[in-house]
């Protein structure tokens, strides 16, 4: 659906990252060549206002997979592959929960994560 893009620039006008001076996927769609898809906040505003119904989120995700990932993002991804969560969450979380008056939770196991995700 990116073929439908007329480079009208509306997505870039509303984009919060662009307003702050970042150049992200909406710069690419508006005809620019300096941008990083990793500077997108995933607020989905561009997609909502695009008159051509371009699936900008999809375009952005394709670009992210092409660009080198910032380290913190890669670490979050690796955490998911290892723990099933974007942070290294382990059983000791239940001590913190109990201190806040919350019941313990049963976490997903590393084995279950391995069965779900093969993308390492």
């Amino acid at each position: 659906m990116i073929e439908n893009c007329t480079h009208c620039g509306l997505c870039r006008e509303v984009c919060p990252a662009e307003k702050l001076g970042g150049r992200t996927i909406t710069s690419l769609l508006s005809g620019g060549d300096e941008y990083s898809a990793w500077l997108c906040c995933c607020c989905q505003l561009c997609q909502e206002v695009c008159p051509e119904g371009v699936d900008i989120h999809q375009v952005m995700m394709c670009e992210r997979r092409r660009e080198p990932a910032p380290d913190p993002h890669r670490r979050s991804f690796e955490n998911v592959l290892r723990y099933g969560y974007a942070f290294p969450i382990t059983e000791d979380i239940n001590a913190m929960r109990s201190a806040h008056g919350l019941d313990p939770v049963e976490l997903i196991s590393a084995e279950q994560v391995r069965l779900l995700l093969h993308c390492l």
Binding site: W38, C42, M61, R64, R65, A69, H73, S76, F77, V80, G84, Y85, A86, D103, V105, E106, L107, I108, S109, Q112, V113, L116, L117, H118, C119
Partner: peptide, 27 residues
């Protein structure tokens, strides 16, 4: 009630690297 063995929802953390994010969400 709580969801035992819940995991990450998959997006955007996994989606930024792989289409497999949908398996996590669906799980």
């Amino acid at each position: 009630q709580d969801m035992p063995q819940a995991s990450c929802c998959g997006a955007p953390v996994v989606e930024s690297f792989s289409d497999e994010w949908v398996y996590l969400a669906a799980y």
